[in-house]
Design a protein around this nucleic acid. Sequence first.
DNA 1: TTGTATGCGTTATCAG
DNA 2: CTGATAACGCATACAA
Lengths: 345, 345
Amino acid sequence: MAEQQRGSVTLMDVAARAGVSLATASRALNGSTRRVGDDLRERVLAAARSLNYAPNAQAQAMARGQTNVVGLVVQDIADPYFSSIAAGVMGAAEGHQVLVTLGSTLRRSEREVDYLVAARGQRSRAVILAGSRMDDDDHAQALRREVEIFENDGGTVVAISQKHLPVDTVVIENRIGARDLAAELVALGYRRFGVLAGADRMLTSRDRVHGFRDGLGRSGVDLDPAFVLHGAFTRDGGYEAMQTLLDSGGELDCVFAVNDVMAVGAMAACRERGLAVPDDLGLAGFDDISTLRDVYPALTTVRLPLEKVGATAFDLVLSAPERTKPRTRRIKGEVVLRQSTRRID
Amino acid sequence: MAEQQRGSVTLMDVAARAGVSLATASRALNGSTRRVGDDLRERVLAAARSLNYAPNAQAQAMARGQTNVVGLVVQDIADPYFSSIAAGVMGAAEGHQVLVTLGSTLRRSEREVDYLVAARGQRSRAVILAGSRMDDDDHAQALRREVEIFENDGGTVVAISQKHLPVDTVVIENRIGARDLAAELVALGYRRFGVLAGADRMLTSRDRVHGFRDGLGRSGVDLDPAFVLHGAFTRDGGYEAMQTLLDSGGELDCVFAVNDVMAVGAMAACRERGLAVPDDLGLAGFDDISTLRDVYPALTTVRLPLEKVGATAFDLVLSAPERTKPRTRRIKGEVVLRQSTRRID
DNA sequence: TTGTATGCGTTATCAG
DNA sequence: CTGATAACGCATACAA
């Protein structure tokens, strides 16, 4: 006898079935301080179970004035860099009774603002902004403004990448990692470097290039600006930049691609030209994307604990204090020498 | 003058500022049938803007009795297979004013039920269940039950992989893909095959194995069950299964790993033993994970349009009819022959 | 066209 | 310990 056409069972249904008041039912099911008689509590629980009661989270949120929604905004969820971070966030959220909503900006930073507004509408507890900032970002000001509004409403914002927003931030030590890599490569004997960079506006790319140049400098090696090529921060970007670099005719002995995905593209370009890595040319990347650990020859790179980055961001959300100075968590990379570079004389 | 301690601006604030009633403000901002005078509408919009008003989505949901939340449940967001599907879902959702929530089961299928309950609590409009079913799934019954409850509440469930739930499903043609692959491999001249499979309970793995065997059979080639090894559905699973297979001493000329990630692990195992692919042994995978397109030697595989799979699932959500027979969308793979296999005589 | 009043499902405040 | 009842913020049926 179609007991319910559509629309779910409510707390009232449960209360009625258990023969108690709404308040008692609420307390028995979701109340914090358990001050309900055991007998009644039992009846309520039984009623809820038999009715398949699921509390209306929206209504709870309204009544409580807060939600357990955390927004995660990435540039591209299909990019292993971001999906690893996302996995870290999800893992850390596990068991904390929070709902993670996913936003993908497709590398258009103005979308970040949209997501922030949406998150505010959802009364989200927090938003994690994962992704490199652009230097000349037209939307930087709009973002700052929206962040401020969101925080004024009581929300928490956590950023991942660079410290460019006055919020808790997981800073990825791109410069240091690239510097260390440069030092190791010089130690191997490399001297004439080329660099495959992303867009110059992209801070992550720029930091890695600067750090690399800095590391070379400390070892007394110069980096010829003519051999620093800019392309898309993708496989194809690396492929094309490498082609251009090879066409330029510079006599290089090692190439640093600012991320693994670009490095893989570069490797493909080398292969096409019959250039052997590492025999004819050393090649290094950055990130240590786990899916790419088995490329051959194995890529020398800077390992970033991406899942830990995500987990750390989530920890910052959980431990967000009332309103203090923004905190910073620094995460360093670790140079991993593999077969794409070798000792040369 | 701390205009607002915490807590956001409400529609009432906007209405007051604009000097109109709540209803008018509501209609001007979110109402469907625009029946508000231009002057008032303008005033309301201006007020909302100046106050940074963002409608409380929870309250809207309650008043409307429905939400725009769509839940996406994957097994592991860090797995490129699932992150590609997720990207497809996100892309299709773009511009449709829906919020995608992300759930990750970490390959524990009982978590799917948890997410479904949570989605029901959120009064989610729909849930997309991405991920292979297990054959002897203890939780299958619980899942069926929860799906039914969710749908009774008016929610839509869409599954991706196999048709094993009475809901709209994006079926991935694993058998056909594997069968086609087998045919092509036989055509290349291969005869003595080994297979690296996932857990036998996992339907996706099983379908691919069966399809492969079927394809061989049609070409008059037998698959020795002794050379079908089961391992984890991961890189390491492929690596270990390949080791075992090589240890078994069978004289094989081609190995089919049921997914690319396992194939890459297998390739690593071969390399360690000094076995050259494809010269000493052919190797094929399944999925055509884009991040792995540049492994060397390039992997022969079955290309699955993963983003399209996700997009199709989302389309099913959008077009979910009142209550009819479950629909099925079949998505086929396409054999891609690359360097990890070759013509042999 | 605009305003008034009611209800959505819960929590929390207040009495009993 | 338990039960009425008032918010919570918005949409909408109804009245003007």
